[in-house]
């Protein structure tokens, strides 16, 4: 079902899945290009959760997806506020929200009444900024070498990276933002899942290809089912 929610910057679309009662998984896609590469996959996970009796929602973030909000005016804080507003739209009805985020989506679920966070291969802002810099370098070619703070050298407040018009403020913001850390609130459940090929520590490692790296968007229904099993079990454990 296509629903909507209001935040201080306007109204955004929100896909909703599953029952109208009980806990809700509020999903956050990665930022920018990786959102396109993982959207079908995340929707598959939310559909699979609905089949398992767990409700889910995928709110559009300001400047992302179908949002009318100009991306060049978006900041991480505004996206965090929008995510918080999406969570509140369920919290008002007495429903417990759980954050589910992929990659840099894990930068967005910091605010609001969230009873637990489930992160797939969370990515820090600095790493994302490094990738954006690498993409920009690929765009401008090897004759022009970009420094680490290339976006600050720009005369204009926005720069184009891989088809996205991003504010220099947002890029500066990224260099400082980190995914939610377990130490931030040890009492709030936080589960980290990573691909087997990823050497960093995780609560669960899964086999498969990282879809966010795919040059063209793709899906992995078998992995979506497996992750939905994990999330459903985790939420039930959190709720009990």
């Amino acid at each position: 079902m296509i629903s909507q929610y209001d935040w201080e910057g306007g109204r955004e679309a929100m896909l909703r899945f599953g029952p109208d009662t009980g806990p809700v998984i509020v999903a956050a896609l990665p930022l920018f290009e990786e959102a396109n590469r993982t959207r079908a996959f995340v929707v598959s996970i939310l559909r699979a959760l609905a089949q398992r009796g767990v409700a889910g929602a995928l709110p559009d973030m300001p400047g992302q997806g179908e949002s009318c909000y100009p991306l060049e005016d978006a900041t991480i804080l505004k996206m965090q506020s929008a995510y918080e507003a999406a969570v509140e739209s369920f919290d008002r009805d007495g429903r417990n929200c759980y954050g589910m985020a992929i990659r840099s989506g894990a930068l967005l679920d910091h605010l609001g009444m969230i009873y637990g966070r489930w992160h797939l291969s969370p990515q820090g802002g600095a790493q994302l900024l490094r990738e954006l810099t690498r993409m920009k370098q690929a765009e401008v070619g090897r004759d022009q070498k970009l420094g680490a703070h290339w976006y600050m050298d720009a005369d204009v407040p926005t720069v184009a990276v891989a088809g996205n018009s991003l504010s220099t403020a947002l890029l500066t913001d990224l260099s400082l933002k980190e995914p939610w850390q377990r130490e931030d609130a040890p009492d709030i459940p936080h589960r980290i899942v990573r691909m087997e090929s990823d050497a960093q520590p995780a609560d669960l490692k899964v086999a498969g290809a990282p879809l966010w790296r795919r040059a063209e968007p793709d899906n992995d229904p078998a992995l979506a089912d497996l992750l939905a099993d994990d999330i459903a079990e985790w939420v039930r454990a959190c709720e009990s």
Binding site: R134, L146, P210, R213
Partner: peptide, 20 residues
Amino acid sequence: MAVAGVLTELEDRLGIIIED
């Protein structure tokens, strides 16, 4: 653009840093 993805994934999986 795909080169950027390949290099970043190589960095992650091998624990190396590739200078551009």
